[in-house]
Design a protein around this nucleic acid. Structure first.
Length: 339
DNA sequence: CGTGTTTGACCGGCGC
DNA sequence: GCGCCGGTCAAACACG
């Protein structure tokens, strides 16, 4: 809704030679197009054919634009629903998930109880205060637990979830309910940051990493410092190759520190593949309060959004294939089949 | 040589 | 008290 109204959805898919900017006369476009180095002699018929094709491609571009607009609208509707839902079930959603295998250990049961307790009566519970004196160390950790699911390449066996923060691995263990090892990380970005992270592959789907974050960072997101120049998700280390790995956890983590989300996510989206991009845009929008409108109204921001959309689309292999098929279908006379 | 990772040992909670 | 289990420690190791 507001998203689509702000964004010029006409796509620049990096097909610059084919691009027809609004103000450019057709004649000029035609000459540019012919001057591409294509080996045909510029016969008039051919030129008009090409013009026709150009128009067709433009029309298709328009269609895609419309599709994108519809998608944006759908997205915004969905986003509103999610926002509403999140505001209703603020803290509960972070801990519950489909992957919560009930067959887990007794310890996990009690852990869940603790979380439940802290949700139900965070401030008033005197029992908690008593237990605090018993176990002051755990008290810190119990503040917030967030579970994040990250899809990785099946070949990627590392237990690395790139979320922009700096983590130091301090242990690895094979747990009973899951044959794949669980890695333990501590946040090493700030020396006094007590946030911990557990990463383990999902039992059901080995390509999914389950990252459990405990606690809240007492420092800002590292990418806040260099969000303009580097992708936060790629700065941790370069082992994991999928952009997908970055986006989801970033989102979840950022929910704990909303101040700098916009910048962070802007760069993140740029380094993400299409599957993550939806999340990236989502994050962008979710993070946007009233302040965000200022950003969104700026032409640079709009241009950036467009670029992100184009980037994400052009990076999507299936989209590339579909586009290539469509274009080749248009240019090869024999293959001309109407949809 | 400094930093980060690995991995076996150890600790504490929990159920029986 | 014992055993199981998850979580943590820390020495050894790897790497740039």
């Amino acid at each position: 809704m507001e998203f689509t109204s702000l964004v010029d959805t006409s796509l620049d898919l990096n097909f610059r030679p084919l691009r027809v900017p609004d103000g450019v006369p057709k004649q000029e476009v035609e000459s540019n197009f012919i001057g591409l180095g294509i080996d045909h002699t510029p016969v008039k018929d051919e030129a008009s054919d090409l013009l026709e094709e150009l128009n067709r491609v433009s029309a298709e571009n328009k269609k895609l634009t419309e599709m994108l607009t519809v998608m944006c609208q759908n997205y915004n509707a969905l986003r509103n629903q999610v926002t509403e839902y999140m505001s209703k079930h603020n803290s509960t959603t972070t801990t519950t998930s489909a992957d919560d295998h009930s067959a887990g250990s007794k310890k996990r049961k009690s852990e869940n109880n603790e979380i439940l307790k802290s949700i139900q009566g965070e401030s008033s519970s005197s029992d908690e205060d008593n237990s605090c004196t018993k176990k002051p160390r755990e008290e810190h950790i119990k503040t917030k637990t967030t579970r994040v699911y990250v899809r990785t390449e099946p070949s990627d066996t590392s237990l690395i979830v790139k979320d922009g923060f700096q983590w130091r691995k301090y242990g690895q263990k094979v747990t009973r309910d899951n044959p794949s090892p669980r890695a333990y990380f501590k946040c090493s970005f700030a020396p006094n940051c007590l946030v911990k992270k557990k990463v383990q592959r999902s039992v059901e789907d080995q390509s999914i990493l389950v990252a459990t974050y405990e606690g809240e960072h007492n420092h800002s997101h590292p990418s806040k410092m260099d969000a303009v120049t580097t992708s936060p998700c790629s700065r941790l280390n370069g082992k994991s190759t999928l952009g997908v790995t970055a986006s989801v956890p970033c989102h979840t983590l950022n929910s704990t520190e909303p101040k700098n989300m916009l910048q962070i996510e802007d760069k993140k989206v740029a380094s993400s593949t299409s599957t993550s991009t939806a999340g990236g845009h989502k994050r962008k929008l979710l993070s946007g309060g009233a302040d965000n409108n200022n950003h969104q109204n700026r032409p640079e921001f709009q241009h950036f959004l467009i670029e992100q959309m184009a980037t994400s689309l052009t990076k999507d292999p299936s989209f590339q294939a579909a586009l290539a098929a469509a274009i080749s279908g248009k240019f090869l006379p024999n293959n001309q089949t109407d949809k």
